[in-house]
Design a protein around this nucleic acid. Structure first.
Length: 124
RNA sequence: GGAGAGCUCCAGGCGGUCGCUUCGCGCGGCCCUCGGGCCGGCGCGGAGAGGAAAGUCCGAGCUCCCACGGGCAGCAGGCUCGCUAACGGCGAGGCGCGGCGACGCGACGGAAAGUGCAACAGAGAAUAGACCGCCGGGCUCCUUCGGGGGUCCGGUAAGGGUGAAACGGUGCGGUAAGAGCGCACCGCUCGGCCGGCGACGGACGAGGCUUGGUAAACCCCCUGCGGAGCAAGACCAAAUAGGGGAGCGGAACGCGGGCCGCCCGUCCCGCCCUUGCGUCCGGUUCGCCGGGCGCGGGGCCGCUUCCGGGUAGGUUGCUCGAGGCCGGCGGCAACGCCGGUCCCAGAGGAAUGACCGCUAGCCGGCGCUUUGGCGCCGGGGACACAGAACUCGGCUUACGGAGCUCUCCGGCG
RNA sequence: UGGGGCGUCGCCAAGUGGUAAGGCACCAGACUUUGGAUCUGGCACUCGGAGGUUCGAAUCCUCCCGCCCCAA
């Protein structure tokens, strides 16, 4: 894996305001998986932004934060990330995700993300 | 070998790839009073969760608000002496309880200040109490003349029985039977004496014993406590709405106080203007007009410009501290003092992650060995509890492993 | 960060120091040709857990566990 520039993920490409999250929940579309729900809505910026949420029903603080870091890692390493349109994404973890391991989380998340890449064409 | 008890320590290590946060250096751009400052990007290098970061149960620092002083109420603490910035913490000690023991645990002030509570059982449950007994006496019946039965009156707290608890315990004397009625010992209370800073302990004397339990029932006594919390607080500061000042235009068209975070509105009060109704007085061309009182309604709008508060947002508070480590001294110890040395996370929808290789612990098998253990092969390979959120000191709870010391029991020599 | 509440049978719950009401559900019996309805009877070994106070604790106290809510 050569040092592809697309593997970086600075904080500007993260969702950082409550209002952004609420906009995603209220006006965005969503896709359901067994471990997580993916919300997404177009934004007015250069590229996509990612947000992750996990309620206390998912687990204790250690569990929730580990899941968030793993989601972030999977998204960062995703080879098709540069093909995404300018979207705000929110990955909402379900309580079932509490006991899942890294490979299960990756297949789940990649399945949810793959559809978004395809719908770039007709939108333009 | 097996059961325990106490104390201390660790929370994997080494290397690599891709990322995140932060700090330093270099390169680049801009400003420049040539000291430097600012901006984002790239490169290199450094640092980057815990013993509990947890629960948020105590105590502090820090910040803002309030405050002249005192009291009541409320809440918290409660053996003693120390330690500490402080504490409900810690150390040492006393007393009590548990354990064969090493040791552990204790909300451990007051029940003669007052009020309350105690189901069921039981004669009686707090001014004690005669159910069965026991003893004495009267009356009466029976008699083998020793006595026995019934009944009434009185004595008795020794015995039985009830209960969680029955008004000091054991023994001897004493007595009609009994009773601290008397005595000895134990306990209790009181008194001074000795030891101890003290909690308390010890021996002595006196009292014959009075004051059952419950204060995690109300309560009393002593001590402490102003309120909020870093989303505290400070600074900068959009849009929209709103506030204040000035000017212009329109219109019949508000001012003060209650009001103490600021401003506005509502509400209430006073005054002023206007208007409707009722009523009274005066005038009258009989249509009304003026005044008083009572009840009710209303009392600004638009534009321009300036100013202040303030929301979103940003910056700060934000990590050098009752700080860590090493050594010496004082102290039984908690801890203190002195000297040296080090800088050790600062995020903000919230940084520590993902993956790979090697490696002890671990698991399985085989061989050697008196035990202890050692060697070889294979598997597996950091994995228990758990994630900083202003910072400390504790407590509590969760949890993996290692070491040292000690106790009891069993076996072998 | 600060504050409040709840936990009692499978479900809903009363009881706030004296030995765990009641309803639904369930089980057994009666009635009925059978079922339903009705009637009778049964149904809590730790009252979220562990300690403590008391003679006695669901109730009082302490520490934990889980759930819910409020304010900023």
């Amino acid at each position: 894996m050569p040092g592809a520039p697309g593997q970086r993920l600075p904080s500007e490409e993260r969702l950082r305001r409550r209002a952004d999250y609420l906009r995603c929940y209220r006006t965005g579309r969503r896709r359901h998986g067994s471990l997580a729900i993916l919300y997404f809505v177009p934004n007015q910026l250069e590229g996509p932004r990612l947000g992750i949420t996990a309620s206390r029903k998912v687990g204790k603080a250690v569990v929730r934060h580990r899941l968030k870091r793993r989601i972030k890692e999977i998204y960062r390493r995703w080879q098709h990330r540069s093909q995404l349109p300018a979207l705000d994404l929110v990955v909402h973890l379900k309580p079932e995700a509490g006991g899942s391991d890294f490979p299960a989380l990756r297949t789940e998340l990649l399945r949810l993300l793959s559809g978004l890449r395809e719908r770039r064409g007709p939108a333009a």
